[in-house]
Design a protein around this nucleic acid. Sequence first.
RNA 1: GGGGGCGUGGUGUAGCGGUUAACAUGCGGCCCUGUCAAGGCCGAGAUCGCCGGUUCGAAUCCGGUCGUCCCCGCCA
Length: 591
Amino acid sequence: MYKSHTCGELRKEHIGQEITLSGWVHRRRDHGGVTFVDLRDRFGISQVVTHPDISPEAHQALYPVRMEWVIQVTGIVRERPEGMENPDLATGYVEVEVNDVKILNPAQTPPFLINKEEEVDEQTRLEFRYLDLRRERMRDNLILRHRFIKFIRDYLDERDFLEVETPILFKTTPEGARDYLVPSRVHPGEFYALPQSPQQLKQMLMVGGVERYFQIARCFRDEDQRGDRQPEFTQLDLEMSFVGRDDVMELIEGMYTALVAEIVPHKKVLETPWPRMTYNEAMSRYGKDNPDIRFGMELQDITELVVESDFRIFASVAKKGGLVCGINARGLGDYSRKQLDELVEFVKRYDAKGLAYLALTTDGEERSSFAKFLAEETKQSILENMDAQPGDLLLFVADDEEVVYESLGLLREELADRLGLCDDDVLGFAWVIDFPLFTWNADEERWDPSHHLFTSPMPEDVHHLDSDPGQARGQQYDLVLNGNEVSGGSIRIHDSDLQEKVFGLIGLDPEVARQRFGHMLRAFTFGTPPHGGIASGIDRFCMLLADEPNIREVIAFPKNQSARDVMGDAPSPVEVKQLDELHIKLDLGEE
RNA sequence: GGGGGCGUGGUGUAGCGGUUAACAUGCGGCCCUGUCAAGGCCGAGAUCGCCGGUUCGAAUCCGGUCGUCCCCGCCA
């Protein structure tokens, strides 16, 4: 062994012992005579000291040593002289008086400082990810992620879940996101697909009698990147037989409640038991099906109040069956014209045509883009409706329901951000249930599943499938945390007739359905238990618990915005010979 | 596919029409026996992403391009 102790564990009780440490030179303080080195390993930092008159050889050996060199030192643990303790360091009451130094590996000067938590260009961090991982931020995130997954494994193991691995090479499912395809050498012209999730396979495991399954599953989707989206990501995938949706939700709520208490004890859960709201409630109150419930500023529907008003924009939208909603941005009543324009630009990103405002300044003035068109009485009822006080800023969007909800829902969170209404140490968990099973796709003139193809309708809504599929609710449940969807699941269809009916409703040709999902339809004829499950986005969850702005910070080797691995430089061209073996000819076109 | 932000020594920033391109940190050398972001002195290190244009003069203004990040589309 290269070390008898870690750099994080030395305490007063070790005083007098001869010990050996190995690690990286975190910092070096050379006083000409006495020299200090802060030696770092994954577990902490220990101060190492050499005196020219006590151990001249060790002192000499340490002379050329620089930051990030890997060294091994042997010496005696000493109590630090009085007044020289460092209470900021766990090991700060002792130091190691070194009598032997071995240089295990010198280091070039790193492109950025390991010992300083300053923002470094992300490109550089990713190019030298192995150095970035040495920094406290990434180390802590890796540890948090490990503990997160470890907790889940233990918790589910104790509850009789079986961890089962499912194939990475499986079958394409074009109805979801774009697939990553893998050409088959053995079968010319045929392809595997990397799984977008183990959805079908876990249902097959239920048919297979596993009853309680989970997996820390890598999933792949070939879509464009976002801060919370990577081409490959990790899900806790879970499925149970003989359960209803309450069973799944209770399990998950229990698990994450315990997890939070253990992994991030400094964080508080906003409300227990976690609130449950229907999809419709989430949309009308927050404009989103993944609302941040840590603050109010809820949407207020004033359509009825303005339908007969003289403000034509509001009135005409209201008469055409649209929606007029507002939010009260408390405390922004003194926003300047420029700041208001910014907000207008913000909602335009989501197709809102404008943003009407009514500001009550702190000194009692009223400024508004539209109030002059309103009868005094109408204005008063709006103010009352929205509980407007001096200093408040009322913001309104009038449009189709979809546009109103999206623009105001996101504006609400943007304003909360500006107003600092959200405490990162508060976890606002909520369940959203009773989603519509389908949403109408006007372009393709068919129903799209709002969750996925295998979600079971609510039993009392099954009859809607024949008459009015839009009315049918699915047995779906999403777990929302601080404005992010962190888990989504459903009770599945376990009946092949019902499954075929759903395929038909979403416009899947019966022949095509058989080709793609015949194995499932067949499996369901062999005695399938009622089953359901859930999948949690582990990257996203860890990102939130680590207070990080994007999931790359909780992934050891993430891809960049253009899906490239900048450290290993992937993807990359391949040898012609490799392509030949795969029976592939490239057609790269002109551009 | 579309829109926006950013690109200045290794790193983080300043400079925004004429500067010897500034500061911090890191790096090299010297001094220093109790520091812990050690300190002091000296020094090296940048043709300001790239190409073109405007101008007597461009890091600075304009156009293009590349890279990167964010957003829209996309993500059952």
